[in-house]
Structure formats: structure tokens, C-alpha cells
């Protein structure tokens, strides 16, 4: 399987171009038979690549994980901007929850704290595992967690203990917010970018008292799900044309002044061709 996990760095279109070039280098002879997109920018990228399937991340994650762990009952997923819990019974999604207003306890939080502590995010997990006495860091809200961490650092805790404390805070925060009121039944699979962090995994295992599986491709489950769904959906499409990546893709956002709703319309162009547009709240708005 050719795969890559890269950051969008605020530019999803550029990231997809980079990603496709990486994939092409990994499998130069392969043809692209179908395309599925998922995640927050699924519409944008779906329009850009003429995807066969544009699927929300809950369903994509469930499908992806079920293809590897058919007996899974609980999926804990913590990604870059959101976190979710998916409960499965007899191979179908029974219930799910997502983080609500804030992005507390997601990968974005860990990476900003890693930056503050000047350690590479990939090293956080190993560092946390070395700690003998993790610092206690408030888990209710990440704004509090951050100020708590600064106080602990000033009180003289080592970086190792701070990192271990942060990992525990992420797990506790998740269970208090996203997992609140949900019955977490084994087998449990932990995935998303944050699942690569051994410290968070250890914290979850300690909190739940259960063994938690982390797939070798745990960061790719959503992509895998979207791929499986697109494979099912596709009907003899033209092979994907890589020269498309040379084209210029532009999004233009404007505020429609047709009525008092002031919809924020985004129009998506390839060169001068309008591919798609979205953001309309009402019938009247232009775009």
C-alpha cells in the first residue's frame, strides 16, 4: 500500500498536490482507479479531484477500522482538529460523539505544547514513557491545562514529567468530554494521528483498565475507509490524470450582499473554470 501522512499547513490544495506526488513516487506504475475524500476539506478536495465518494469522517473511520478489526466495539479517534468516539455493534455504527465547541485535547493542542517546550512532536510519546512521576495537569479545558503546565514547569518539574502529564491530560479530557456517558466496551481501537503517541495510549490503558489496539496504520484509517467506499462506488472512470496537478487551483471567497444573511460564498476554480461553490445559506445568494 502506498501511503503518506502529511500536514496541510493551512493549504489543503497544496498539500494534496504534494501528497499525490509522494504517492506516485511510491507506486510509479499504479493507476488510480477511484478516489475518495474525507475530513474537514472533503468537499474542496472532492471537487478538485472529481472524487467518486465524498464521505464524512465518522463513516470513513468506521469503515476503515472495520476492514482491519472486524470485531471492534469502540473506536477512539483523536486527530489534528477534532476527536470522536464511535460505538459499533455487530459491525454497524450504533452511536458516536464528536468534540463540541472547542478543540480541547486534540492533536493541535499537543503540537502547540510541543512547540512551547521545544521538543519534536514525534518524540513526545517516548519522552512521556520515561517519566517516573507525571505532573498533574488540569484536564477540564486546555486553556487551563496550558497555564497549569506553565506553573508546573516553573515549580521545577522536568520536561519528561510535563510531557507525561500532558499526555494524561489529553486522555482524561477526552474521556470527560467526548466519551462522557458512553459505554466503552472492548475491543477498543485507538487511532488518528495522536494514537502514535505512546504516552497518550498508556494513559488511556491506565484510565480504562483495558487493552487498547493501535493499528500499524492507525493514522490512515479514515483514508482507508474513504478508499474502500470509493472502490465500491466507482464505475469505470477515466484513469486519474496526474497532469491535473500542474493546473492552478484557486479559491475565491466573498461575502454575498444579496440579502441580510451575508453568506460567505467560496468559489473554487481550476484555471478559469468554476468547479464548485459553497457557503450559500439562502436561495437568493449569488454563487
Amino acid at each position: 500500500m502506498a501511503s503518506a501522512y502529511i500536514w496541510t499547513q493551512g493549504d489543503p490544495i497544496g498539500a494534496v498536490k504534494r501528497l499525490l506526488n509522494i504517492l506516485r513516487r511510491q507506486a510509479p506504475d499504479a493507476e488510480i482507479g477511484s478516489i475518495g475524500t474525507t475530513g474537514s476539506a472533503r468537499k474542496l478536495i472532492g471537487a478538485m479531484l472529481h472524487a467518486d465518494v465524498v464521505k464524512n469522517e465518522i463513516t470513513a473511520h468506521a469503515v476503515g477500522t472495520l476492514s482491519r478489526h472486524a470485531d471492534v466495539r469502540t473506536i477512539i479517534e483523536i486527530g489534528g482538529q477534532d476527536s470522536k468516539i464511535i460505538l459499533i455493534e455487530d459491525g454497524i455504527v450504533k452511536d458516536y460523539a464528536m468534540n463540541t465547541l472547542c478543540a480541547a485535547g486534540t492533536g493541535a493542542f499537543l503540537s502547540s505544547q510541543a512547540k512551547r517546550l521545544e521538543i519534536p512532536i514525534e518524540a513526545m510519546g517516548d519522552m512521556a514513557m520515561q517519566s517516573q512521576s507525571p505532573a498533574k495537569i488540569a484536564a477540564r479545558c486546555t486553556v487551563f491545562a496550558e497555564s497549569d503546565m506553565i506553573h508546573k514547569a516553573q515549580a521545577g518539574y522536568s520536561k519528561m514529567d510535563l510531557v507525561a502529564g500532558l499526555c494524561r491530560a489529553v486522555a482524561a479530557n477526552y474521556l470527560n468530554n467526548v466519551g462522557k456517558g458512553k459505554q466503552i466496551v472492548s475491543p477498543i481501537v485507538f487511532q488518528g494521528g495522536v494514537s502514535k503517541n505512546k504516552g497518550v495510549l498508556a494513559a488511556f490503558q491506565e484510565e480504562l483498565g483495558e487493552k487498547i489496539h493501535v493499528d500499524a496504520d492507525s493514522h490512515l484509517m479514515g483514508a482507508l475507509g474513504a478508499a474502500i467506499l470509493s472502490q465500491k462506488k466507482t464505475t469505470h472512470r477515466k484513469p486519474f490524470d496526474f497532469s491535473m496537478l500542474q493546473m492552478e487551483y484557486v479559491t475565491r471567497a466573498h461575502i454575498c450582499s444579496g440579502c441580510t444573511n451575508n453568506c460567505e460564498i467560496v468559489q473554487f476554480y481550476r484555471g478559469d473554470t468554476l468547479l464548485d461553490s459553497w457557503g450559500k445559506r439562502c436561495e437568493g445568494s449569488v454563487g
Binding site: N56, T59, I92, V93, K94, L101, E264
Partner: peptide
């Protein structure tokens, strides 16, 4: 199946869309 949707002064409908779509997917299954 029940989900709770919390509204505030959000301007981007993307989060709402994800939640509705996945909820309808659950019902379909």
C-alpha cells in the same frame, strides 16, 4: 439513535454538515 447538536454563533456550516451526514449514515445502516 440520538445525537445532540449544540449551536452557537458559528458561521461555517461544515461542522453541522459532518454531524448530520454521519447521523443519517448510521440510520441508513
Amino acid at each position: 439513535p440520538i445525537i445532540q447538536i449544540l449551536m452557537d454563533e458559528h458561521t461555517a456550516p461544515a461542522g453541522l454538515e459532518t454531524r448530520i451526514e454521519s447521523f443519517v449514515d448510521i440510520l441508513a445502516k
